[in-house]
Simulated scan of single mutants.
Amino acid sequence: MPDFSPEDINEIDRLWRSQAWDHMWTGWAAAGERPETVWIFRTLTHWRRFPLTRTATGYALSDDRGNLFREAATLEELLKAVEAVPQLPGTPP
C-alpha cells in the first residue's frame, strides 16, 4: 500500500478546513512525513475515528474496527461517501 505524500496531507488538511465548523468531520491526525495511515475523526453520533489509507487507484476508508468501508479515486469522492453514512442507532441527531 502506498504512503501518503506531503501533497496528499496538504489536500486532506485543505478539505478538512473547507468544511463548516459544525461538520461531522471533526479532525484528522497523521504521524511522520509520509504516513501509511491518516486517522479521520467524526462526531460521536456518526463514528468515532477511522483509518484512511492509500491504494494503487486512490483511497480506502475503514471503520474503527478495521473493516473496509469505502474506496474512492479521489479524496472528494471519499468525503461524499463518508457524509452519506447514517449516524449510529440510538443517538440523538
Rank of each mutant, 00 (worst) to 15 (best):
M1T: 14
M1R: 14
M1S: 13
M1I: 12
P2W: 01
F4W: 08
E7C: 03
E7H: 05
I9D: 00
N10W: 00
N10E: 08
E11T: 05
E11M: 04
E11L: 08
I12V: 15
D13E: 08
R14Y: 00
R14P: 00
R17H: 03
R17Y: 02
S18F: 09
A20S: 15
A20P: 14
W21H: 11
W21T: 08
M24R: 12
M24W: 03
W25G: 03
W25D: 00
W25C: 02
T26K: 09
T26A: 07
G27C: 03
A29F: 05
A29H: 10
A29V: 10
A30S: 15
A30V: 12
A30E: 09
A31M: 07
G32R: 08
G32Y: 06
G32F: 09
E33I: 06
E33R: 13
R34E: 08
R34Q: 13
R34G: 01
P35G: 06
P35L: 03
P35C: 06
E36N: 14
E36V: 11
T37F: 00
T37I: 12
W39N: 07
W39A: 12
I40A: 11
I40N: 09
I40Q: 09
I40L: 14
I40R: 05
F41I: 10
R42G: 14
T43V: 13
T43E: 10
T43R: 14
L44F: 04
L44E: 02
L44M: 03
T45K: 15
H46I: 12
H46E: 07
W47N: 05
W47M: 05
W47A: 05
R48T: 15
R49T: 13
F50W: 08
F50L: 10
F50K: 03
F50Y: 11
F50C: 09
P51T: 13
T53I: 06
T53E: 11
R54S: 05
A56V: 08
A56Y: 00
A56G: 12
A56I: 01
A56L: 10
G58E: 08
G58T: 15
Y59W: 12
Y59E: 03
A60F: 05
L61I: 03
S62H: 15
S62Y: 13
D64R: 01
D64A: 04
D64S: 11
D64M: 05
D64F: 01
R65K: 14
G66A: 08
G66K: 13
N67Q: 15
L68A: 06
L68T: 06
L68D: 07
R70F: 15
R70K: 15
R70A: 15
R70T: 15
R70P: 10
T74V: 07
L75A: 05
E76K: 12
E77G: 10
L78H: 01
L79I: 03
L79Q: 05
L79P: 02
K80D: 09
V82P: 03
E83N: 03
A84C: 10
V85H: 07
P86S: 05
Q87C: 06
L88E: 13
L88K: 10
P89R: 06
G90I: 03
T91S: 12
T91C: 14
T91D: 09
T91A: 11
P92Y: 10
P92L: 14
P92I: 04
P93L: 00
P93K: 01
P93Q: 02
P93A: 00
